[in-house]
Every structure is written in C-alpha cells, then in structure tokens.
Write a protein that binds this DNA or RNA. Sequence first.
DNA 1: GTCTATACACCGATAGAC
DNA 2: GTCTATCGGTGTATAGAC
Lengths: 199, 199
Amino acid sequence: MLMPTSRPTGLHHGDLRNALLGAALELVAERGAQGFTLAETSRRAGVSVAAPYKHFADKDALLAELARTGYERQHDLFQAAMSAESDPADQLAAFAAAYVAFAAENKALFEITFAAGLEKQRYPALAEAGDRVLRLLRGPAAQLTPEIAAQDDLIHTIGAAAHGFAAFLAEGIFGEPTAALAATQRRARDAARKLALAH
Amino acid sequence: MLMPTSRPTGLHHGDLRNALLGAALELVAERGAQGFTLAETSRRAGVSVAAPYKHFADKDALLAELARTGYERQHDLFQAAMSAESDPADQLAAFAAAYVAFAAENKALFEITFAAGLEKQRYPALAEAGDRVLRLLRGPAAQLTPEIAAQDDLIHTIGAAAHGFAAFLAEGIFGEPTAALAATQRRARDAARKLALAH
DNA sequence: GTCTATACACCGATAGAC
DNA sequence: GTCTATCGGTGTATAGAC
C-alpha cells in the first residue's frame, strides 16, 4: 500500500523535550555550564531556535529541569550505595564514595546541580529534590548521635567533605578524573568514616 | 607659574591596569564569574572598550591575573593563620578555618581562583601561585607522618575538606554566608583536626 | 508543535587617528 | 595610551505563518 515515508509537518521526531535535555547535557559536558546556550542546544537537536520555547519557559527553566533530574539520580545512587551497608558510619562513608563517583561519571550533571547559579526559590521542585538528597544522611546521623544539632553538624560535615573531594577530582587536582577516581573514593570513604566515628 | 590643571591626553588617570582589575573584581562580585565581560569592565573603569587591550592580551589574561593575585592573598592569609599555631594538627585546622574565611570574605576572588575555568597551563605564573598555596600544608603534614605518600594523602584530605566547607558556605547551604561564617569555621577547624590526628 | 524571519542587545577584538 | 568607529559573530526571545 502507499504510505508517505514521512510527514514533513515538523522536522522533528516525537519527543523534542527529551532531545533538548540530552543535547543540553552534551553541550555542558563539552563546554561547561557557562558555555550552555539555548541556540546551540537547538542546533544540536536539529530544530530552530524558537522550538524550545514550546517546551521550556526560557533558558534557565531547561537548566533547572536538568538539575532536578541530576538530584534525582544522585538520590537513587546514594540510597543504593548506603543500603549496602548496615553500620551507620559505613553508610556515611558509602555516601561519600558514591558522591565522588557521581561527580566523576556525570561531570556535566554535577556541575549543573552545584554551580549552575540558578535561583532555587524560583524552582520549588528543584529545591525539594536537592533537600531529598541531603535527607538521606539523616538516618545514619540519628543512629550516631541523639541530638538534632549534632546530627545537623555531622550531616553538613560529611556532605562538605564529600563535596570537597568530588570538586577537587572534577577540577583535575588529583590528575585525570577517571584515573584518580578509585583512589579518591578510598580517601573520601576513609575521611567520612573518621569524621563519623569521632563525632 | 602657569601649569595646566590636567593634561587631557587621555581621559584616564595613571594606573588603568589596576583600575581595570578592580572594576573586574566588582563585576564578578555582582554577577558571578560567568557574568564578567571586558566591555562592562571598561565601562566601569570609564574607558573605551579598546583600552584594556593595551594592558591585557585578552579577556582571559585579565581574569588569570586576578586569579593569580587571589592565590597570593590566600598564601599570605593562610601562612599568617598557620604561624599562630605550633602544633601541626592545629596548623592544619587553622588553615581550614582561614580557607573558609577567605571564601566568605572574598567571594569573587574565591570564585575566580576555583571556578573560572581557565587553562592553567597557559598561565604558568597562575599555576605556580596555586601550587604555592598547597605547599603551605607540607610542613605540618611532614611533622605528622614520615612517608611522602601519606603526607600527600593528608594534604589532599585537609584541602578537600576545607574546600567543601568553603563551597557550601559560599553557595548559601549553611544560610547567609556572613552570618554562618563563624560556625562554619568552627566546623572546618574541628574536622581538619580530627582528620589530621586520625591520619 | 515547528518553522521562518526578525528585533534587539551584547560581546570580543581590531584598525587607524591623535 | 586612549579614543572613535566598526566588523563579525552570537545570543534571547517573540510574532506570525503553516
């Protein structure tokens, strides 16, 4: 039977929204968060510069959505890593190691979630997703110390230490990131355990 | 005797180079490193957009010079903070606290030194200034452990922890930076001491 | 939902006058 | 050493056709 091989009503496939998110992530991976532009993203997705505005309010909205998925991925990865341990200090150590791995293996998402400079108050879903990640540390912290203030202190300390290792690794201070990943994870794990036990 | 009150040979005073550096720093403080432009910097310094090119090869060269002075300031501040302590673990703790203070009190410089995304190999003086800061930790580390590898490990661990606290503070994760500075310094100091003693 | 076309603004960098 | 003038490029966002 006769069938048009394609309907040129639009030049694009079914899910431009996701295609744009993917192209944007690639772009950030290549040029950094600051090199991200909607125009170049459109080009890479094979559409006009006007098309994205049917899916995102503006440039920042696309970036915020990317950051939100980044936090969700973090949440799932960290939760999985922590659930493999039973001792609370080991759980915090597993979190630190997983945080470092995320930074090395998802450099673009790591950069967006932390350093995209977007106003989280404008994107409640984003703020909530970020809080959810930090809340993962509450359980182990509560097992290690009864007072809320001390728990917050421990959570912040573990988070900061993990972030420091991740940032140094991503920045190349420890050498080529993929090569230095394992050693950096070991260090982060050790540091987190020491900080947890000496609370 | 007759003397012209000023020679309008150029519309600017004696030290445009420094005026440009100051204006650029202000601009970064207001709009972030990614909001820095040479054109706006020129406007703030009261000169044409062409003038800066007599003092800096290009946009990145100005930024690199700013980063270099940032590392120098860090070096002096950290050295002073550490010299006030005699115990090596206390020196490392003092470093961490001073690093946090630098981030809070020189947000623009902190951002430029760490996240400006400039290729340090293109600016040897910049790379050297950065290394000099890290080298400050060598002395105390050597007093705490004899093996070079363990010293490196300790230096990196202390540096990462300090950076994590500083980054979280600057990012507003602990609340308003100036308000949270003292508490964050306390935490960073504690964490550094624990990590140093449990090496 | 996507395109074409466009308005508008800004930037980096250079040429040539003084 | 600074200015004026300018080129070439890129970006955000919108209007209106289909």
